[in-house]
């Protein structure tokens, strides 16, 4: 514990005593990356290797044939693939932005403002967090139907905006902001909106980045809303399109390769968003005002 470097995150050089940390961390890291390597390697395997027994982890003769096949399959469908992609981008973008805004606002109010029902609301949120979402699929359909959100792009967005995990995580982070900071700001004449925008949001950035990663995944990978609420083919999302595509081909031998390629294409945006948001988590964690 003798080598603390104040606020510098990384020490300037490696020390022998840290070797054991690296050994531990690097060996564990290998396991974390394994599934991702597997996805890439699987999508590059030629048919022969996909059905090899015993199966191999790494690809031996990488080929882009699976992607080429996938492209061929998608180019013959009536509705162009870009339509589904457009739907998914609009839906995912709105869900991420709106659900974070809603969670952050609610999290701030439930943590720092005084009003009668706040405890009950937070407990209700925890209960919703615990509830198995499959059990509410059908009742939720009736609500969506009554509101006229079926066959409407908003039907992908509005039902998932109140995200219990998001509120839970953000509220826990707002709790850690000392009340004195907020009080002194309000004595200086800051309104609650200013406090929220200028103090709370910058400090809870790491939590918001985390929640945005979770929200992105939930929205991008969501096939349920397309399946249940949308009858019009043109309103369905990319994720749903990919599952139907591979679902139809599953029994065919060639389908396996296409499925692996499709899975990778579905996964890559997750990875990109992750890398992008992850850096925000790091930046803000180190410089946030709470100590």
């Amino acid at each position: 514990m003798s080598s603390f470097h104040g606020n510098k995150v990384n020490p300037t050089r490696m020390h022998k005593s840290q070797f054991k940390f690296y050994l531990f961390l690097i060996s564990l890291s290998a396991f974390m990356i394994l599934p991702i390597i597997f996805m890439f390697s699987q999508s590059l395997k030629p048919i022969g290797e996909l059905f090899l027994y015993p199966p191999r982890f790494f690809v031996e003769n990488p080929t882009f044939k699976n992607f080429y096949d996938l492209f061929n399959v998608t180019s013959v469908t009536v509705i162009p693939m870009t339509r589904f992609l457009f739907n998914s981008i609009v839906v995912t973008g709105s869900v991420v932005f709106l659900s974070i805004t809603i969670s952050a606002m609610a999290g701030f109010a439930l943590s720092k403002l005084e009003f009668k029902w706040k405890k009950v609301l937070f407990e209700a949120n925890i209960i919703a967090l615990m509830f198995v979402s499959a059990a509410v699929t059908i009742p939720r359909y009736f609500v969506v139907d009554t509101l006229g959100l079926t066959d409407n792009l908003l039907g992908h967005i509005i039902p998932v905006l109140a995200m219990p995990v998001g509120l839970f995580l953000i509220k826990q982070f707002v709790d850690q902001i000392p009340n004195e900071i907020i009080q002194s700001a309000s004595i200086d004449g800051a309104t609650n909106f200013t406090i929220f925008r200028k103090i709370v949001v910058p400090v809870i950035m790491p939590a918001m980045a985390t929640v945005s990663i979770l929200a992105f995944q939930m929205a991008w990978n969501n096939t349920e809303t397309s399946e249940i609420y949308m009858n019009k083919e043109t309103l369905r999302t990319f994720a749903f399109y990919m599952t139907t595509l591979t679902g139809n081909l599953e029994n065919k031998v060639a389908g396996q390769g296409i499925a692996a390629a499709a899975a990778l294409i579905m996964f890559v945006p997750n990875l990109i968003i992750f890398i992008f948001m992850q850096s925000r988590v790091i930046d803000t964690m180190a410089h946030s005002g709470i100590k």
């Binding site: 990663i213 979770l214 990978n221 969501n222 599952t243 579905m266």
Partner: peptide, 9 residues
């Protein structure tokens, strides 16, 4: 793994 363990992936 957060991007792996949730959803379709």
């Amino acid at each position: 793994p957060v991007v792996i363990t949730s959803g379709e992936v």
